[in-house]
Simulated assay, not measured.
Amino acid sequence: MAENTARNLLNSLPPIPDDLPVLIMGPTASGKSALALEIAEHSGGIIVNADASQIYDCWRIISARPSIDEEARAPHALYGHVAFDQDYSTGHWLREVRTYLSGPQRPIIVGGTGLYFSTLTEGMADIPATPPELRKTADAIPLPELLAGIDPRTRDRIDTRNRARVQRAWEVEQATGRTLADWQDDTPPPLLPLDQAFPIVVTPERDWLITRINSRFDQMLQAGALDEVAAMRDRYDPNLPSCKAIGVPELMAHIEGRMTLADARERATIATRQYAKRQRTWCRARMKQWHNVDPSQG
């Protein structure tokens, strides 16, 4: 079914020029990875990850990373190449993706992390790294206090429910004495301007997407997500970005006896739906010039 949907999406698009990188953004469970694979098999290219959870080597099932069989059908890059406790930022990703923009194969960049795409196509401020001691301090501050410590212009530009984004803004202001908004306003030219790519945004109808999200977490459990998370029990640190991947805190709570599996499933599914809603909002606001495809239609 996923292959048929991806083929229909590809057929609904204008012809994709062979000389342009392809960008594919969409909410979780929307079928964007299947579309990337369809394009790669149809016209060639290397599939490059743009999802902040799929970079980690400890998660394949829980992050919905392409399977081993899928990776064998086309070249893939930047999947599962970062250790669970390794520091990795949007800047790291941007430096790594640069290699594939000038490589021998056309990159098909796919994922659900909107910040990766915006920095790629709009540019990224050259902000100094946060000192480790300041990061440790920020980790212990409640979200409302972090929000109160950043300026209004920055608050208007970020997802204020996303702790990682709020904490980053707070850290930047504390470490540099300049607001994140100020740094962004001094952004250098982008690595890949939008008019030099073929951008696709996958925008399914809400109820269709919710049905997919509900069934996909059950499929993850059947595929061994619980064992995958249990294997990280001795290394689990709730402050690490890798351990904040949706489904990981919930299943770890079950493994440690703090939550039933049914409750963990329900909370992870709710968190996924909330994340998908934020992604859909991002797509509507930031990707109006992208080619729009809807997998729920047909």
Rank of each mutant, 00 (worst) to 15 (best):
I158G: 03
D159C: 13
D159V: 13
D159M: 11
R161I: 08
R161E: 12
N162L: 05
N162S: 11
N162R: 08
A164V: 10
V166F: 03
V166A: 05
R168I: 06
A169H: 03
A169E: 06
W170F: 15
W170A: 14
E171A: 08
R178H: 14
T179L: 05
T179G: 09
T179C: 09
L180H: 00
L180Y: 01
Q184C: 11
D185N: 14
D185K: 09
D186W: 02
D186H: 07
T187V: 12
P188L: 14
P189K: 02
P190E: 07
P190W: 06
P190Q: 09
L191C: 03
L192S: 10
L192M: 08
P193C: 07
L194W: 14
D195P: 00
Q196I: 12
Q196D: 15
Q196V: 13
P199A: 10
P199D: 04
V201M: 06
V202M: 01
T203P: 01
T203N: 06
T203Y: 01
P204K: 05
R206K: 14
W208R: 08
L209P: 00
I210H: 03
T211Q: 07
R212K: 10
N214D: 03
N214C: 03
S215W: 00
S215I: 03
R216Q: 02
D218M: 02
D218T: 05
Q219I: 04
Q219A: 09
M220H: 14
M220N: 12
M220Y: 10
M220I: 05
L221E: 11
Q222Y: 01
G224L: 11
G224H: 11
A225M: 07
A225Q: 07
L226F: 02
E228F: 06
E228G: 05
V229C: 10
A230M: 02
A231T: 12
